[in-house]
Design a protein around this nucleic acid. Structure first.
Lengths: 212, 212
DNA sequence: GTCTATATACAGATAGAC
DNA sequence: GTCTATCTGTATATAGAC
C-alpha cells in the first residue's frame, strides 16, 4: 500500500537536524496544526507529517501531545499576556503623557495583544476534552481580568459612574477579544490604531442618545 | 466484571416509554451531557446511561451523535436567536416608547438572550472536531450580527459618531456574550435588568474622561 | 537521528436475540 | 421496546531495527 503523502515531501525537512533544532521545528509545526485544527482536531500524525518526520520520532522528542500543546500554545500565550501586563503597568505609571492619551494607548495595547493571541485562543477554545483542560476559563480569562482590573482604576475615569469594575473589565475584554476573533475568523486584518481609537471614543463619550 | 453504574439506576428511567417520549427524553439528557462536557467530551455512553438505556438502544433512535447534537444544541440555539430577532424588531417598530427606553430594553433583550444561550454556546465552542463544525464562526456569529445590524441603526444614536457599524455590532455582541459566559463559568447568576442598565449607560454616555 | 511495525485503548455504531 | 455482544475505525504511544 503506497502512501500518497510521505514524510519528506517538503525538501527542506529532509535534512538531519540536531535534537534541539528538531524540537524547535516540531513545536513550530505543532503550533500551526493546533491553530488550524484546534487541539482536538489536531492529529499528532499531521504534526509529524508537517515536520517531515514520523509519529514515532515525534514521540522521541515529546512525551505526549499534551506536552506539545503546552509548549506550542500555552507558553506563548502566557508570555504574551505577561508582556501586556508589563506594558500597561508601565504606561499607567507614566506622568509625561496626558491621561486621555494613556487611555487611548491602553486600548491600543489591549487590542494589539488580543489580535496576537486570538489564533492561539481560538485553538485553545477547541480543547474541550474529557472535562479537564478548562484552560480558557480557569487560566486565561482570570489572568486577563487581573491585568486589567489592576490598571483600569488608575487610567480610566472609572469609577466615575455607577458601573461595577468587574463589568467594566468584562466589557473591555469582550469588545477587544470579540473584534480580534471576528476579524480572524473572516480573515480580515485589524487596523489596530484606527479601531483602538474608535473603541476609545465609544468608551469615553458613548455613541447613543443620553438617558435622562 | 460487574459494572458499578448500571443503566436503570434512576428508578424513573426504568419505565417503558413510547418511541416519541424516549426520543424527547434522550434529547434532553443529551443536552445536559453536551453542556457539561462539551461536544467532544460528551460520550454517547454517558448520554445513554443518563437516559437509563444502553448505547445500542440510543442508536435505534438516532443515526449518529452528530444528529443528536443537532437536535439538542443547534436547534434550540436557532430558536432562541429567532426569538431575539423578533423581539428586537418588534421593539424597534414601536412608537409608543421613548427611544432612550428602547435602547435600554434592547440591551436587556440581548443580554437576556446571551445568558440563555451561553451554556449552549459554551458546549458548541468545544466542538472542534476534524475541521468541520465551524458552528460558531460560520453560523452563530453571523446570525447574531445580522440581527443586530438590522436593528441598531434604527434604535441607537448611531451613526452619531465616527464609529463603524460593524465595530459597534461586534462591541455589543462581545460585551453581552462575555458577561454571560463569564458569569456562567464562575457560576454566578446575572442580574439582567441591573447589568443591562449599566451597559446602556456605558454605551450611551461613556465612562471615562472625554478626549479633547 | 530516523524508520517500520505494532500495541493499546476506546469511541461510535451495528447485529441479532428476547 | 430493550438488551448482550461485537465490529470497525482511528488516535496516541511504544518497541526495536537500521
Amino acid at each position: 500500500m503506497t502512501r500518497s503523502i510521505a514524510p519528506g515531501d517538503r525538501p527542506e525537512a529532509r535534512k538531519r537536524l540536531t535534537a534541539a533544532e528538531r524540537r524547535t521545528q516540531i513545536i513550530a509545526m505543532a503550533r500551526e496544526v493546533f491553530v488550524e485544527e484546534g487541539v482536538n482536531g489536531a492529529r499528532s500524525r499531521d504534526i509529524a507529517d508537517r515536520a517531515g518526520i514520523t509519529e514515532a520520532y515525534l514521540y522521541r522528542h515529546f512525551h505526549s501531545k499534551d506536552e506539545l500543546f503546552q509548549l506550542a500554545i500555552d507558553e506563548p500565550l502566557d508570555r504574551m499576556i505577561t508582556v501586556l501586563s508589563n506594558d500597561t503597568r508601565e504606561l499607567a505609571a507614566r506622568n509625561d503623557v496626558d491621561r486621555v492619551e494613556v487611555v487611548r494607548r491602553t486600548h491600543e495595547l489591549l487590542l494589539g495583544c488580543m489580535v496576537e493571541i486570538a489564533p492561539l485562543v481560538a485553538a485553545a477554545l477547541l480543547s474541550g476534552g474529557t472535562g479537564k483542560n478548562q484552560f480558557y476559563a480557569d487560566y486565561l480569562f482570570p489572568r486577563l481580568r487581573d491585568v486589567l482590573a489592576l490598571v483600569i482604576p488608575d487610567i480610566t475615569g472609572y469609577p466615575t459612574k455607577a458601573i461595577e469594575l468587574d463589568l467594566f473589565v468584562d466589557a473591555m475584554i469582550g469588545i477587544h477579544l470579540t473584534i480580534a476573533l471576528e476579524h480572524l475568523l473572516e480573515n480580515k486584518p485589524v487596523d489596530v490604531p484606527v479601531v483602538a481609537e474608535q473603541v476609545t471614543t465609544m468608551f469615553a463619550v458613548g455613541v447613543g442618545r443620553r438617558p435622562r
